[in-house]
Design a protein around this nucleic acid. Structure first.
Length: 1043
RNA sequence: GGGCCUAUAGCUCAGUUUUGGUUAGAGCGCACGCCUGAUAAGCGUGAGGUCAGUGGUUCAAGUCCACUUAGGCCCA
């Protein structure tokens, strides 16, 4: 039979169950069991195997596991392939830190071969750690079969993709200004700019550009990046904006009309001389601030038109340096501007920049300012706070510089991607529009990185003939290589040694040294991991994925690269549905931050809360809102589980005694009570709701449905049925009760199983497997329960809900009258909806017991028993009617409250006759209250009114005192340290009340307190003794355990 | 400057679409109490809301529409 149930210990349970699954190979059994089932294709987004997992990873992983487990219980065959993202700057930067390296030069000195080995080691180490962490969260995956984006297969698949792009003419080497990290010495692509903008305060400078054609007059230009001034070639104005010619001190300046206030303090120290439009300034020439430098010597600085110039920004005149900004660079094409590239990869000034040469951008500010001052063109400086991008990896502020990078053109594919996106189901739906916005705005995809540990781009540009050779596979590389090779892996530096023959001219060609954007690595996985090249039939079975699920930030990373590559290769989206979730915050609503002390580590969360609690926290949260993760919420969750656990514990406690013949997976049919059928109905209607919610990606709804089921099970079914299980004999009624509870507990566990795999397995093992060894070995091998509509009784569920409300309202009426529940009352009169009377009548006994009344009656009209009272809401009246409110209050004292109540409670207005005329009082102006008339107490809520008859007969009073006495005896039993089943001898000594009560209720008292002997003699030395007070009487009581 | 999301009790959040409809709900916290055969558990009652604001549609708006404000996210 069952094992006794101890305390709820999530940690012990999960550890035990993990071992159990492992020893019994439960996951493998599941995969085999569903091997011939319909397919559910889930595609796992690769997690970067670079650090231990954080709690923010747990959300997605829990959702992923929920869906895989749910569809597994529904018999679906799945791949269960986990993925690791292995390449790119992420890994390099961490390895650099470990090795104490701090630049590309240091890496090269260290040796690329050793460096690549270290990167691989790191990935291997953390993929193992992350695997263990995921297992502890309960994730079931085919772990040994995880894919790694650094694998040769993955790399070759990307090569194929790149070759396809090349064949379509999409691939090109671009020369552009890119956001650049001078520490990592690489550019950042558009999607790497995500979450890289921070509030930064910079020193901004106003600089004069003296106009050649107008001696003594200058353009005033403002910039937050003074280091770019040596690269200035032009000044841009908006042709349609108004500009002012002003006298400021000794200078005459040209400034935008709307920004002129910046020139001085509140406009006091300048004088307007004239005005003009931007177009009037076009073509003017000016002296650049650094014309003395070799690199800027022959530049012809002029004023150009640009309609992106904002009227509020800076001075309305924009400094243009095409070598230092993307928009500036684009403008240089339109305006045919020269381009000055001031810095190298490390942000160091190149030759030709005088004293700046050899210095880094970050260290130059003072020198530039000093130089500008010396030349007399520095107008003023100011601190300026704005959002500025920094490197997402190392935190270094980014600069913009001109670089050669490889791009995939997005013009041709853009409409196809938008079309494909329109067929995808996004959860939540508005993300689809986000994706479309992103696609509309996406620039060409910059795929090259000037780094080491990454996908080697298979580009072999021929210096002799200019032809670009793109290799599409390892086999092709072998065929075209100048000599045979043996590579340990497709990575730098090994691959760099391979040279090929140009297919055009036959010249020997070397690979470019660039590696690829890591989103290429991740975007190819629907092909590389689904046997696109080896087994097309298999691929067709699994592509496109039914579900992809990641945090929303993946929109322009993984979701984007997946879509791009899949549309390029197959003209279709690789996913049918994409579910996204928001980010995880600390309990206080802020980001988790080590230094703020609000961070919780993943391992710590699992070890302290238990994985089931962690999962419940994730699954109970709307995926559209950030999750607040913390110990406070986890305690609340544990309490909810405890409610269910206690029912389980209660059931096992009694079932072990009585050993009723229980049958797994059978709905009790015979001898059931109405409340049994109600519970069975609740389970089945919840089942339907849970399934629908999960399948519609409304996981939270399912979680709430389960919690409500726990609540009804514990707080109504068990509460109302407890005495049924105390009975000595085990008759048909009791057996039906057991089977109902058994059916419910095991079914609810199976409903919960995909959500909380550990605790549900634990209970299943005890309730099902220990009883029926032929049942499936694991709860996760059982089919997900199917709602039987024939067992759902809507009227019954509504009726019980109404009974629950009657009880609640009745207790409120008791509370209002100050009558404790233990004092029996004669009658509760109920006003309830006509159509539910019949159902409610069947539960009269429940109402009678819960409210402790002798009987219930239905009432058509509570009128004679209640007094209505309408209180004015003076605030509302004052705001609506002003001064009249006082007069209304006076007049209100004369109003018949019943009439007013009736009118207002129906939502109508009530007309009040004032000397000044009729005033309409609306339901918003009042508060409706109800109280019992003399001798009655009443309360009302949502269509239910309960009137209690408060009249106490001597008989009722005596019974109340008896219950009081019994209660105090029970406390004594507990204080005496007795077990609940211990039998006692009871001494009721002294006190008149005893005589009366004992005479009337002797049997009742004996039964309730398990007294086998009840005596009026004085308690002896062996007794636990106490003076107690009942009503106005006191007495001496003793009790002692008897054998 | 453009787009998307959010705003409900002290706190954390349901409810809002499909389908506008009685007195807007829960948990936590707080106050008071009950129960004592689930017991280092369980339960009840209460206080606490101008449903961000304004306007509109409607017999009827927390719910639909428009605008405004505040916060968040994204783009530029």
């Amino acid at each position: 039979m069952f094992h006794p149930v101890g305390e709820l210990d999530f940690i012990a349970i999960y550890k035990h169950i993990l071992t159990f699954w492992d020893e019994h190979k439960c996951f493998q059994t599941l995969v085999e069991k569903n091997g011939s089932g319909p397919r559910f294709s889930f595609l796992d987004g690769p997690i970067t195997a670079n650090n231990p997992m954080g709690v923010h990873h747990g959300w997605g992983r829990t959702l992923k596991d929920l869906y895989q487990r749910y569809y597994a219980m529904r018999g679906f065959h799945q791949r269960y392939q986990n993925g690791f993202d292995c390449q790119g700057l992420w890994v390099e930067v961490e390895v650099e830190k470990d090795l104490g390296l701090n630049s590309k030069r240091e890496i090269e000195n260290y040796g690329l071969e050793k460096f690549s080995r270290k990167c691989r080691e790191r990935v291997n180490k953390f993929s193992q750690i992350q695997t263990q962490q995921s297992i502890s969260l309960g994730q079931w995956m085919d772990w040994p079969n995880s894919y790694y984006t650094m694998s040769d297969t993955n790399i070759e698949s990307i090569w194929y993709f790149l070759k396809v792009c090349h064949e379509r003419g999409w691939l090109y080497l671009g020369h552009r200004a890119m956001p650049w990290c001078s520490r990592c010495e690489t550019s950042l692509s558009q999607h790497e700019m995500l979450e890289t903008y921070y509030e930064v305060t910079h020193k901004a400078v106003y600089v004069r550009f003296p106009i050649k054609e107008r001696p003594g007059e200058s353009l005033l230009v403002w910039t937050t990046t003074p280091w770019t001034l040596p690269a200035n070639v032009a000044a841009a104005v908006h042709p349609e904006l108004e500009y002012l010619r002003i006298q400021a001190g000794e200078h005459i300046l040209i400034v935008g009309a709307e920004t002129v206030h910046r020139v001085g303090t509140e406009g006091k120290d300048y004088r307007v001389l004239g005005k003009c439009f931007g177009k009037d300034l076009l073509g003017l020439h000016y002296d650049g601030p650094f014309d003395d430098l070799e690199a800027a010597k022959n530049i012809d600085h002029r004023v150009i038109a640009w309609d992106m110039v904002g009227s509020q920004e800076g001075t309305g005149i924009v400094h243009i340096a095409p070598g230092c900004g993307q928009e500036d660079f684009e403008l240089s094409g339109v305006e045919n501007l020269p381009i000055i590239q001031p810095v190298d990869e490390t942000g160091t000034y190149l030759e030709g920049f005088g004293e700046f040469t050899g210095k880094r951008v970050q260290d130059l500010q003072q020198a530039i300012f000093a130089d500008l001052k010396r030349k007399g063109v520095r107008f003023k400086t100011e601190s300026y706070t704005h959002r500025y991008p920094s490197c997402w990896r190392c935190g270094e502020e980014l600069i913009f510089r001109l670089v050669d990078e490889w791009f995939i053109s997005s013009e041709e594919i853009r409409p196809q991607m938008r079309e494909a996106n329109s067929k995808v189901r996004w959860v939540p739906s508005h993300v689809q529009k986000r994706m479309d916005d992103w696609l509309v705005n996406m620039g060409d995809w910059c795929i090259s990185r000037k780094r080491y540990w990454g996908l080697p781009l298979p580009f072999y540009p021929c210096k002799a003939c200019g032809h670009l050779n793109v290799i599409g596979s390892l086999e092709e590389l072998r065929e075209r290589a100048t000599e045979p090779f043996d590579l340990p892996e497709l990575h730098r530096p090994w691959i760099d040694a391979v040279k090929i023959r140009c297919e055009k001219c036959g010249e020997t060609v070397t690979r470019i040294t660039d590696v690829g954007d890591c989103w290429l690595d991740a975007g190819i996985v629907p092909f590389s991991t689904m046997k696109y090249f080896e087994d097309r039939e298999y691929w067709k079975d699994w592509f496109p994925a039914d579900l992809v699920l990641e945090m929303r930030a993946q929109l322009r990373c993984w979701f984007y690269s997946l879509l791009f590559m899949s549309v390029a290769l197959e003209k279709t989206a690789p996913y049918k549905c994409v579910m996204t979730h928001e980010k995880v915050l600390a309990e206080d609503g802020r980001e988790m931050h080590k230094s703020w002390g609000n961070a919780i580590w993943f391992d710590e969360a699992v070890e302290k809360m238990g994985p089931d609690v962690v999962r419940w926290m994730y699954l109970g949260q709307a995926t559209t809102e950030p999750l607040r993760f913390g110990y406070g919420p986890s305690r609340e969750i544990k309490r909810k589980f405890l409610q269910f656990w206690n029912v389980y514990s209660f059931f096992v406690l009694y079932a072990q005694e009585d050993k009723p013949g229980l049958v797994y997976d059978r709905v009790p049919q015979e001898n059931t009570r109405l409340l049994d059928r109600w519970l069975i109905s609740r389970v089945n209607s919840a089942d339907a709701l849970i399934r629908a919610s999960v399948e519609n990606y409304e996981v939270r709804k399912a979680v709430i449905a389960i919690e409500n089921l726990w609540e009804d099970l514990s707080n109504w079914y068990v509460r109302r049925n407890r005495r049924r299980f105390w009975k000595e004999e085990t008759g048909p009624d009791k057996i039906a009760g057991y089977q109902t509870l058994y059916y419910t507990l095991t079914t609810v566990c199976r409903l919960m199983a995909p959500f909380v795999p550990f605790i549900s397995e634990h209970i299943y093992q005890n309730l099902v497997r220990s009883l029926d060894p032929s049942a499936p070995e694991s709860i996760h091998h059982t089919p997900y329960p199917v709602c039987d509509p024939g067992l759902v009784h809507t009227t019954l569920e509504e009726g019980v809900a109404m009974v629950q409300r009657v009880v609640s309202v009745g207790l409120a009426a008791r509370n209002a009258a100050g009558q404790k529940v233990r004092q029996p009352l004669a009658c509760a009169m109920l006003v309830v909806p006509e159509e539910l009377r019949e159902t409610i009548r069947q539960f009269e006994q429940d109402i009678v017991e819960e409210l402790n009344v002798k009987e219930t009656q239905f009432l058509d009209d509570p009128g004679p028993y209640i007094r209505r009272h309408v209180a004015l809401d003076m605030k509302s009246l004052k705001s609506r009617l002003g001064k009249e409110a006082g007069a209304i209050r006076k007049a209100w004292e004369e109003v018949n409250q019943d009439d007013a109540y009736d009118a207002l409670s129906m939502g109508n207005e009530f007309l009040l006759d004032l000397p000044s005329g009729l005033v309409a009082i609306t339901p918003d102006d009042v508060r409706l209250a109800m109280e019992g008339t003399e001798g009655y107490s009443a309360a009302s809520e949502k269509g239910v009114t309960v009137v209690l008859d408060l009249t106490l007969t001597p008989e009722l009073i005596a019974e109340g005192r008896c219950r009081e006495l019994v209660r105090k005896l029970q406390i004594m039993r507990k204080d005496a340290g007795l077990e609940v089943s211990d039998r006692i001898r009871l001494h009721l000594f002294r006190g008149e009340i005893m005589d009366d009560i004992v005479n009337r209720f002797k049997d009742f008292i004996a039964a309730e307190t398990l007294a086998v002997e009840l005596t009026r003699e004085a308690p002896g030395q062996d007794c636990f003794v106490r003076d107690i007070e009942v009503g106005n009487d006191t007495g001496l009581v003793g009790l002692v355990k008897v054998a």
